[in-house]
Simulated assay, not measured.
Amino acid sequence: MCTLKLAIQKNGRLSEQSLELLKTCGIRLANGDRKLRATATNFPLEVLFLRDDDIPQYVEQGVADIGILGENEVLEKARNVATLDRLSFAACRLSLAIPREESYTGLRYFNNKRIATSYPRILGAFLKEQQIVAEIEEIGGSVEIAPGIGLADGICDIVSTGSTLLMNGLKEVETILRSEAVLIATPGIGPGPAAILEQLRFRIRAVHNAATHKYILLNAPDAALAEISTLIPGMKSPTILPLAREGWSSIHSVVREDIFWEVTGQLKKAGAEGILVIPIEKMIL
């Protein structure tokens, strides 16, 4: 039987969120306990646990059919892989940082400076584009300590909350790249794995749609139904059910969460009452 091979990071926040995505997609792993591989019991999927910076190479070479990793790693490794989907988790940014006590007046600060980073390709392209001449010190880890030990004048590193920079006496001064988890695929994926991949992407889209939408229920006077229906039109149109109370109806609709918050005041002004906002588990369009 054909199996789709997925590479994910073997530990860390991105790994946890990748496994949670599979779980939400209804995929159960027989062994997800940080061993080298795990097999799904109810879907033709095998998961390989790898270092995140090795995943692009494994996917390019077809050892894994697909991979989930940060977009920053995909761009830095520049392997021949296809980026299929942005997954809306593990958001971070690749930023320049300098010692907290330094005065920063703009990118020209970095002219003739040394910058420590694990992302020399991305940083080099950025500096070239900005016409900044700086020396890049490539190091594999603990980039944030480089200024403190005299290795560099500043750093270029991944930032999520900024707490690590603060602990090491640094401040973020420029954002080079905004990144999130992406799904990548080998360019030579076979027809069997490709068919399974489409099934997996279908599930991921259903989960993503559910996460960004909410099921809305509210009561409203019949005279306001037309106005409220234009505010929360749903996927095609809202469902309207008469209430036992004469002249009133219940409106059910599915709305993007950001849009709902924008029109809440208008709903109340139109006469809506008893508004309920309910999460959606899966949503298939």
Results as ranks from 00 to 15, higher is better:
Gly154Ser: 11
Ile155Arg: 02
Ile155Asp: 02
Ile155Asn: 01
Cys156Tyr: 03
Cys156Lys: 02
Asp157Pro: 02
Asp157Leu: 13
Asp157Arg: 11
Ile158Pro: 03
Val159Ala: 06
Val159Ser: 06
Val159Glu: 08
Ser160Asn: 08
Ser160Phe: 13
Ser160Asp: 13
Gly162Cys: 06
Gly162Asn: 03
Ser163Lys: 14
Ser163Asn: 12
Thr164Gly: 12
Thr164Glu: 14
Thr164Phe: 08
Leu165Ser: 02
Leu166Tyr: 11
Leu166Arg: 14
Leu166Trp: 10
Asn168Arg: 15
Asn168Ile: 04
Asn168Glu: 10
Asn168Met: 11
Leu170Phe: 08
Leu170Ile: 09
Leu170Thr: 05
Lys171Val: 10
Lys171Leu: 01
Glu172Trp: 07
Glu172Gly: 00
Glu172His: 00
Glu172Cys: 11
Val173Tyr: 06
Val173Phe: 10
Glu174Asn: 06
Glu174Cys: 09
Thr175Asn: 09
Ile176Ser: 00
Ile176Trp: 01
Ile176Glu: 04
Leu177Asp: 02
Leu177Ile: 06
Leu177Met: 14
Arg178Ala: 14
Glu180Arg: 10
Glu180Val: 02
Ala181Pro: 05
Ala181Thr: 00
Ala181His: 05
Val182Leu: 08
Val182Phe: 03
Val182Ile: 09
Val182Met: 04
Leu183Ile: 09
Leu183His: 05
Ile184Pro: 03
Ile184Asn: 03
Ala185Leu: 01
Ala185Phe: 03
Ala185Pro: 04
Thr186Ser: 15
Pro187Gln: 04
Gly188Arg: 13
Gly188Ile: 00
Ile189Asn: 01
Ile189Glu: 00
Pro191Leu: 14
Pro193Trp: 00
Ala194Pro: 02
Ala194Val: 01
Ile196Asp: 03
Glu198Val: 06
Glu198Ala: 12
Glu198Ile: 01
Gln199Lys: 13
Leu200Asn: 00
Leu200Ile: 00
Arg201Glu: 07
Arg203Gly: 07
Arg203Gln: 12
Arg203Ile: 09
Arg203Asn: 07
Arg203Cys: 04
Ile204His: 03
Ile204Val: 11
